[in-house]
Simulated assay, not measured.
Amino acid sequence: MAHLDWFGTAFHSTDGMQHLDVRQSGNGVLITSSPAEIDGAPAMWQLRLRNDDGQGLNELGAALASGRAHGLSVGQGPGYETVLMFMPDHPREGVGTLARVRTVGEIGGGVTIERRAERPMALWGEAGENLRRIVPRLSPDAPPVTEAENCLPCPGCGRPVYDSSPSHNLIGGPVPVLGLCRLCVDGSTLRHLRQAAVPIAPPAARCPGNHGRRHGVGRTPLDHGYRVTKRCPRRCPACPPRVTCRNDGCPIFI
C-alpha cells in the first residue's frame, strides 16, 4: 500500500511559515507541527497516535474538520492523566490550539501544558479532513512503530522532511544543499509566497563606495538555495561583510 500523507502551511506575519504534516506511521498516524512549543520552548512536535479501533482517530479528525472542541486520553499513570486537547478559536478567533495536557489528581488539580501548536482554523480543518481520509486506509496488519522516524527540516522553508518524503539535493553552488523538500526545488514555495503577497526580497543597497557590489538587506534563501559570504572587492570601511547569493550577487537573509 502506498504511503499516505498530507501537508499544509500557513504564513504568520511575525513567526513566518507554520507547517502541519499528517501521515501514516505503521498502524497509526503521525502529526507533525513545525514549529510548536514543547515545555515552553520552540521545537518540532511529532505526535504519534495509534489506531487501536479507528474510533478515536476518526473522532479527532471530525473535530478538527468541524472546528469543535475535543479531548482524547493518550496516557494514564498513578495520579495523573495525559489528554490531547483541541481548542478552537483559542487563544484568539480564527486560530486553534492542539495541546498535550497533563492533569494531576482529581478535578481542580494541577494542569500542565506540555506541548502545544497554534494554527489557523482553516489549516486544522484541512488536516482533519485528510486524517479522516487516511484512517480507513490504515492496514490493521501493519506493525506498530516503536522508534521515531528520522525527520529534518527543509533548509529552504523549514518543512519537516521525513525519510518517506521525497527530498532533493541542490548541487552546483559553492555549498551543496541537502534535504530540500520538493516544493522548494520546483519553485512552488516561492511562487505561493509571491501569490500571497508575502514580502520576500526588499530592495538591495549598492555598495556605498560605488564599487558595484550589492549588499544584503534581507532576502529569503528560497530563491537560489545556497549561500556564500563575500566582501566588497575593495574592502572599504563603509562596506561591512554581507552574506550574498552567487546568483548575480543578489543578497539573501540567513
Rank of each mutant, 00 (worst) to 15 (best):
R213N: 13
A63S: 14
L180K: 03
R213F: 15
T244F: 06
I254M: 03
G28D: 07
H168Y: 14
R119N: 04
L98W: 01
P176R: 03
V74A: 01
C181N: 06
I252G: 04
F86E: 03
D21W: 11
D53F: 06
P88Q: 01
V74P: 03
G71F: 00
P221R: 05
W6F: 15
G209T: 11
S33I: 05
A148N: 09
L57D: 06
P237F: 10
I31K: 00
P143L: 12
V83D: 04
H3G: 12
Q46V: 11
R50D: 13
F11G: 00
L60I: 13
H19T: 11
Q46I: 04
H3C: 05
P203T: 07
G40R: 02
G187S: 05
H70P: 09
T97F: 02
G79D: 11
E37R: 02
N130Q: 14
L190T: 06
V175W: 10
M87S: 07
M121I: 03
H215Y: 15
H12M: 03
I200G: 01
C157M: 09
C236M: 12
G75C: 11
L123E: 04
R102G: 05
G40A: 07
N27E: 10
P241Y: 02
R234Q: 15
G54H: 06
D248A: 12
M17V: 13
S165E: 14
N27D: 15
C245D: 12
N210C: 11
V217F: 13
R68L: 07
I200N: 02
D163R: 05
G105R: 03
G79N: 11
H12I: 09
S73C: 08
G105C: 12
S167Y: 11
C151G: 03
A127K: 00
A197V: 08
A36D: 07
Q76C: 08
P208S: 08
A142C: 12
V145Q: 07
T220M: 05
A238I: 13
T189H: 08
W6S: 10
A36Q: 03
A148L: 14
E93I: 04
A41K: 12
A196E: 01
G56K: 07
R194P: 01
P144H: 02
N58W: 02
R214K: 10
D248I: 13
E118Y: 01
N169A: 15
C245S: 14
V135H: 01
E126N: 00
V145M: 09
G77N: 13
G249H: 09
G125Y: 00
T146N: 03
R214L: 15
R231V: 13
I254T: 11
F11T: 08
V243I: 14
L64I: 08
V135A: 06
V243Q: 06
C151T: 15
P91F: 02
L190Y: 09
